[in-house]
Design a protein around this nucleic acid. Structure first.
Lengths: 142, 142
DNA sequence: CTGTATCCCCAGTGATACTG
DNA sequence: CAGTATCACTGGGGATACAG
């Protein structure tokens, strides 16, 4: 299994895209003002990724369902991530006044849009995970 | 500015992709054995992203050049990330036996391949960052 | 059931100094 | 110049108990 070669043409295209993105951000711009870093820090967080992926697979999930699926996450972190992901608009929270209370989370359209791009990335990772494993073994052997 | 609507057809396609990725991982699978989580944790780390993006724009960078560009990163963290990114195969390190020593970092073909997908994601973020800002304001107003 | 509150802990981080 | 070594720190995260 090999990664297909990235051509020079593609590299130039990539460089242009990066320039467009970062062109207006000079090196002195503070961390707080770098929206990419800020937004990606949440949206590409290891827990957020799993939450979003699961909500992409199961259209609606409740708190404890998510907790079971996102293996190893604590109440606190799950609660925080859900709140922040809701704040940024990726998902919606709907509480039903039942006893006991029922709360349902689902992706918003915005969240689905993000998921599409995220999935391209995780698919790449999934495809080439064995290469990375090999790379690590080679590196360890040095 | 609006995010374009994700159709039901697209959602189904996404769900299938997720199933394909996670199908073989059942909920009991331990964290260590979840390659997605492991690999993404490094490759979508906030520092790694910036390192890779800068190396996508400047084909070759030296240690201190990177340190200046990746604003706020410390010696230790930069050194660690570079080592790990090299280990996983995203970038190559070349040391020249000069005095003082010169070390050059650049993306491998594997790194360029990853960058293409990563860039799709960061472009999405860049495009919709204002929506997220609005979402946060709305949320704060509740 | 869905969280919040509390406490504790340590791994990752930043700063600084130093070496090949 | 390119890192490593050291150390102090802090805030994210885990476990648990509890509340609405």
């Amino acid at each position: 299994m090999e990664v297909e070669t990235v051509t020079d043409y593609q590299k130039v295209k990539v460089a242009k895209k990066i320039k467009k993105m970062f062109g207006h951000i000079n090196p002195q711009t503070s961390i707080e003002l770098c929206p990419i870093r800020d937004i990606m820090a949440l949206a590409s967080d290891k827990w957020s990724i799993l939450i979003i992926l699961y909500l992409g697979f199961f259209p609606v999930l409740r708190f404890n369902q998510l907790k079971k699926k996102v293996f190893g996450i604590s109440n606190k972190v799950l609660s925080e991530r859900l709140k922040t992901l809701e704040r940024d608009g990726y998902l919606s929270r709907k509480a039903y006044a039942e006893v006991p209370i029922r709360v349902e989370y689902q992706l918003t359209n915005f969240g689905h849009s993000y998921l599409q791009k995220l999935l391209d990335l995780t698919e790449w990772v999934d495809t080439y995970k064995d290469i990375i494993r090999e790379n690590r073994l080679k590196y360890g052997a040095l």
